[in-house]
Structure formats: structure tokens, C-alpha cells
Design a protein around this nucleic acid. Sequence first.
DNA 1: GTCTATAAACTGATAGAC
DNA 2: GTCTATCAGTTTATAGAC
Lengths: 229, 229
Amino acid sequence: MTDVKNERMIETYVYMKQSFDDSVARLLNAAESLFGDKGFHPTSIRDITSSAKANLAAVNYHFGSKEGLLAAVLARHTDPINQERLRLLESFEAEAGGQPLSVERVLEAFLAPTARFLSASPSFMRFAGRMISEPDPKLRRILIERFEFVAHRFVAALRKSLPDVPEREIWLGFSFVIGAMVHSWTHRADLEMAAGQSAGHLDPNHAIDCLIAFAAAGFRAQAENGEAA
Amino acid sequence: MTDVKNERMIETYVYMKQSFDDSVARLLNAAESLFGDKGFHPTSIRDITSSAKANLAAVNYHFGSKEGLLAAVLARHTDPINQERLRLLESFEAEAGGQPLSVERVLEAFLAPTARFLSASPSFMRFAGRMISEPDPKLRRILIERFEFVAHRFVAALRKSLPDVPEREIWLGFSFVIGAMVHSWTHRADLEMAAGQSAGHLDPNHAIDCLIAFAAAGFRAQAENGEAA
DNA sequence: GTCTATAAACTGATAGAC
DNA sequence: GTCTATCAGTTTATAGAC
């Protein structure tokens, strides 16, 4: 009874069984990790598929292209983070009921949601950091379109908290915060090494608390300069 | 009289005339610009030689390899910047004569030397920024070896200015400053666009002054937190 | 949905003529 | 020092069998 058709069905079953492991998810995980470690361009589709134990053709089949895979890797975590940022900001604003928020609260809404992800998927945060410093305009566009709204929303919130600081200064300070945040995502290992002799383990939550305090003081100093000028 | 030998001499003269333009410098300029715009990996030797109007073999002839060219591009400007940083820091320390420097002065010694280069060779600063966020360990090593000493020197100086802040916190704050600085190098165009509606032109000197004030206030806030804890 | 085989183009690097 | 021609290896992407 082992005719050709039967054999094919068995083979089909084997194929399906392999797909139970969800090769799409394996590809996303492998790509996230490799993009974070080596960067987008130096990582070949071959690197990704062999690391994911998938076939070479799988990336083009599931995502259309290497760039499609990149967009998928980004979309998987980036929207939840930004949504939580906006949710936090709105809940803080609701709490305050009309009163302007402290700079710390605004920065907390922006930075705190990254803490959980830094622990849960550090490779994604490294990947996101690489994306922010990615020169290729095509790749940058993919990222910018997702962050544009959030950036404008938070700059508007900071303006309310710091009425004495001109908008140009707010943008400048906000870009300092983004730069500091991204740098700490991508170079945490280096930092641990450099400060390691005297420091011990650097907790992500502690780093974020530090950045909030650091940047809040920075913004307030801008307010004083603005009054002085 | 136009024998074979004569023809060859004429050709040799033509070759020499081309080299009067200093193709090495043209290659360095082209590579600096392309590495800054597109990044190291996506830029091919063909991109560089055709932009520099040089021959495809020229890069390997003059620099041994693509990585050799990268190291040469970096070395051309990086050492002068770091030397001026150290020179400034030492002259400030000599002025103060034993008294600890203000955080502002230390940060000024670190950041001010970049201002001139930001105006004079913006493509190099973009390139340097890309190098700092470069994941490839081989390329990172080239950079880190040049900056290791300077980083430790400035952290030591900051420690003296901020005796109440533990060394781990100094390293963290210093990494915030580096991240903010690099981000402003690489994304100045984006920032100008984002803040442009309300802001007008962003002067590099003004951005650096802002970062000095911003970060100095940040470090002082760390000192207060340290005392509170 | 998986897999093999292959297309078509591109890469860094080098040998040898001039 | 320049240039052509080329090597050997890689890349993304696809067509077609199962």
C-alpha cells in the first residue's frame, strides 16, 4: 500500500511538522539577533536562514525581500513600545488634570517602556539602536515614519512642562536624550567593561532612572539659560 | 622619431600629470564622504574609486585593503581632535593650579575641539559617528584603540570635579554625553528638519554650548542623588 | 511551505601591461 | 603610479520539483 501518493503524503506531513516550529518566528528571531550584532548590510540572507535552520528561499517567500524582513523585525516590537509611551504620557496627564507635568514624568513616559524590552529582548534594542544610526535613507525612512508622531507628541509635552525653553532648545535637548538612550542600548557591553573595574553590573532600570534625572536637570538648566538671555 | 620608446615616455608623462592631483587625497576625501553618507559596508571600492576619478586598483595599491583605507580616513582627523582635547584639559588644569575644574570646563575641553571639525569637514564627523555605532568588532577595535586613553583621562578629570559621584555614575553620564554628541553629529540634518519650522539654522557652536550646560547640570544632579542615597 | 538549483549581478583583491 | 582584465567568492532573488 505504500504507493507514490502515500509517500508524498508522508513527506507533506514531515514538511508540516517542521512548520509547527513556526519558521517565520525563527527567521524573525535570527534576523533580529544578527541585525543587532552585525548590522543589516553585513548580514546575508544565508546567515539568517542557516541560523534559523530554514531554507535559503524562506526569507523571500515569507517577507518578499531582505528589506521586508527588516521591516517585519522592526514592526514586531516597535509599535508596542511607542503605544505604551503614549499610553503612559496620557495617563500621567490625566492624573495631573490640566496641571503641567514635571519634566521627569514626561521623560519617564518616554524611557520607562524601553526598560522591560531591554531585559526581555536585548538583541532587539541593539537592533533598534543600529536602525536609528542607520545612514541608508531607505532604511531610515522605515524607522522615521514609525517614530515621527511620537517625537512630536513628546516635544509638545516637554514644551508644556518647560514654558521658558524655546522650542528649538527642546528639540535639541530631546535629541540629546535620544542619542544618550540609543548609545546606552548599543554599547551597554562596552560600558560595563569600561566601568567594570569599579562598578559591577549595570542594571537597565538604574541606567534609565539615571538618564531621567540627568536629562531633567539638563532641561531645567536650559530654562535658566533662556531666562538669563 | 616617434618610435615606441618615445610614445611610452609621453604616456608616462600623462600618468604623472594625473598623479599631480594627488589621487591619494582624492581617495581619502571620496571615502570619507561615502562612508559618512552610506556607511562602510554598503560602500564598495568601485563607488569610491569612481567618485575619486581613480582606478579600481588604486585603493588596494595605496592602502592595502578597504579596511586599510578606513583606518587611514579615520587617522587623518581623529588624532588632532583628541590631542587638542588633552591639550585643552591640561591648560585648564594648569590655569586652575591644583583646584578642581568645574564640570563645564572638563566638558568644554572634550566637546569644543569637535566644533571646528563639524564646520570644516562635516562628512568626517558623520563618518566618525557611524564608526562609534559600528557593530563590527574589527572596525570598532580600530576606533576604540584611539579613544580609550582619552576616555579614561576625561573620566578621571570628571571624578575630580565631582567627588560625590561614584565612578560608575560618572561612566554612565559620560556615555550619555558621548551618545548625545554622536547623535547630533550624525543626525543634524534630521534635527534641523524636525525643529526647522520653529527654529531656523542650528549652529554647531550653539549645540555644543547647549550640550555642555545640559550635561553639566545632569552630572550635578547625579551628585545630589548620590548625597541623598 | 519547503527545498534544490541556478540565474544575474556584485564584491574585494590581484597579476601584468604600460 | 596607473590601468585593464580577470579571479574567486559572495550576494539577493527566483523558477520549478516535491
